[in-house]
Amino acid sequence: MPLFQPLPAYSIRVRHKTLDLSKPQIMGILNVTPDSFSDGGQFNAIDSALSRAQEMIAAGATIIDIGGESTRPNAETVATSAEIERVIPVVKAIRTHCGDEIWLSIDTSSPQVMEEAFAAGADIWNDVRALKREGAAAMAAQLQLPVMLMHMRGEPTTMTSLAQYDDVISEVITELAARVEDVVSVGVKRANIILDPGFGFAKNYEHHCALLTQLASLQSLELPLMFGVSRKRFLAEVLNHSNIEAVQNSPAIERDTASTAAGLFALQQGAGIIRTHNVAMMQQAVALWQQLTDYNNLSA
């Protein structure tokens, strides 16, 4: 595939807003949890969460992804009431101080959390469990909002043992396609669906390498793609395999350069949304990619 190929012409809509996914959109990660793998405990007060959201918006984020439950391997389950207490005040604070134009995504699998978040002003449901919890698909159909369906096998506590594939690309495509049909059958509009291949979930190093080099294969499903690998263990494995002593054994917060490079590889293969901790770094890379893509198309 050409290096600077335009993104597919997708868009998502909710309420009065439309987000054009034919241009790269950056999703800034805002974890309002005490135990997320990279930044747990940093933004679980309303003031610090709002400040972080404003910082990411100023750096170029068009979507803020708010998570009230860690989905790292072996993370403890969070009660729905606790998740609501973490997420809803932050949604309200961002809406009050940042206006309606910023898109707010909620990283949750709970239909109750999403219902309250949507009422408070959230726009997108980002579900690592792909609406498999009881009542989730029906709630998505009721709310008629954009939903991100991620590929995962099992639960965060069991997924590592399920990272077994004969052909990871074809199996991820097949399993995502089946999930799309399942949720559409209960009333979720296909036009509201965004797919996430699930980096870091029920996959090992080799599976991640295959997915990142063949991500364009998922375009066969003819739905928008969200790519999220920011600071994840796969990047630590990449750096450790490099045999470059200066980048080996790096903590999560020091993986932003590799995260940004991976984001560019995903853009090249058609991912319209890049989920990242470091919005400013990703925005610079996106600016370069977009200008070279525009130049390439004009000169073709």
Rank of each mutant, 00 (worst) to 15 (best):
P156F: 10
W289N: 05
A210N: 11
G270N: 02
L143Y: 04
A45V: 14
I29Y: 01
A271Q: 06
Q248E: 13
P224H: 05
A130E: 06
Y10C: 12
E134T: 15
P89L: 02
L267R: 11
V90L: 06
G99R: 08
S299H: 07
W103N: 05
E237S: 12
P8G: 02
N192Y: 00
R52C: 10
A130C: 09
M281S: 10
N278R: 02
E115D: 15
L50C: 07
I57D: 04
T71R: 10
Q291L: 09
T158L: 01
Q112V: 08
V14L: 05
R95Y: 08
R86N: 06
A49P: 00
L30A: 04
H241N: 15
T260H: 04
A246Q: 13
N278D: 14
T257Y: 12
L50I: 03
D35C: 09
G99L: 08
D100S: 09
A246M: 05
F201P: 02
A58Y: 04
N31E: 11
V286N: 09
L239S: 09
S220W: 12
A137Y: 07
A117G: 07
P34D: 11
I84F: 00
G198E: 03
S11P: 00
L19E: 02
A120S: 15
N31V: 12
M1K: 03
S185E: 07
V279T: 09
V147C: 11
S110P: 07
A177Q: 13
Y10Q: 08
